[in-house]
């Protein structure tokens, strides 16, 4: 049976509107809507799609929505699922941003955000430690890590250039390794 576009939109609207933070946090909602409720994919397929979403450019949650939408209803399905996924964010953030713009001159709001920035800083430190434990594990990765931080922070190199350089470096190292092993 053909999947209806409105069902795709609603399912991803719910996933976008009910997960905090994206990434792994979206998996339970994704499972409930896509696997349990609609049977659009099996758990293996969803995990595959999620894995691809992680290593293609862009927001993981959006990549996942796009790919499931595409498999069910082609390009139009991909667009509809993506729009569903981003609608809650756009509505909620726009409302909040307009309220905050009106109260931003309040001394209490300014004080609160002074403290909030400090908390956010600490949360980012935590994220960096978690990520580094997984990815910065040997000499080459430590060198890449330091180079990427130093080039952007001290020399003002654009993050886009860093990403492109990293891809080229990875391809070159992989090619060299395979060449020397044959």
């Amino acid at each position: 049976m053909k999947v209806r576009l409105i069902d795709l939109y609603i399912a991803f609207f719910k996933i976008g509107g009910l997960t905090f933070g994206g990434g792994y946090a979206m998996l339970p909602m994704l499972q409930r809507e896509v696997i349990d409720k609609h049977g659009w994919a099996t758990i293996e397929e969803v995990l595959d799609i999620y894995a691809i979403g992680q290593c293609t450019p862009g927001i993981i949650a959006v990549n996942t929505a796009t790919m499931i939408g595409y498999r069910k209803r082609g390009v139009l399905g991909a667009i509809v699922a993506t729009l569903g996924e981003i609608t809650p964010s756009v509505v909620i953030i726009t409302l909040l941003a307009s309220v905050l713009t009106q109260v931003k001159d309040s001394v209490w709001v300014a004080r609160a955000f002074g403290g909030i920035r400090i908390a956010v800083c600490a949360l980012i430190v935590q994220s960096i430690i978690t990520l580094a434990k997984k990815s910065v594990v040997d000499l080459p990765s430590i060198l890449l890590y330091i180079a990427s931080t130093a080039l952007t922070f001290f020399l003002g190199v654009s993050p886009i250039a860093i990403v492109v350089l990293a891809i080229l470096c990875g391809l070159l190292v992989g090619w060299t390794k395979r060449r020397s092993s044959t």
Partner: peptide
């Protein structure tokens, strides 16, 4: 292989 540590470096920036 190269992107993973690099992206952590960018977030550190």
């Amino acid at each position: 292989w190269a992107l993973r540590p690099t992206v952590v470096g960018l977030i550190t920036f």
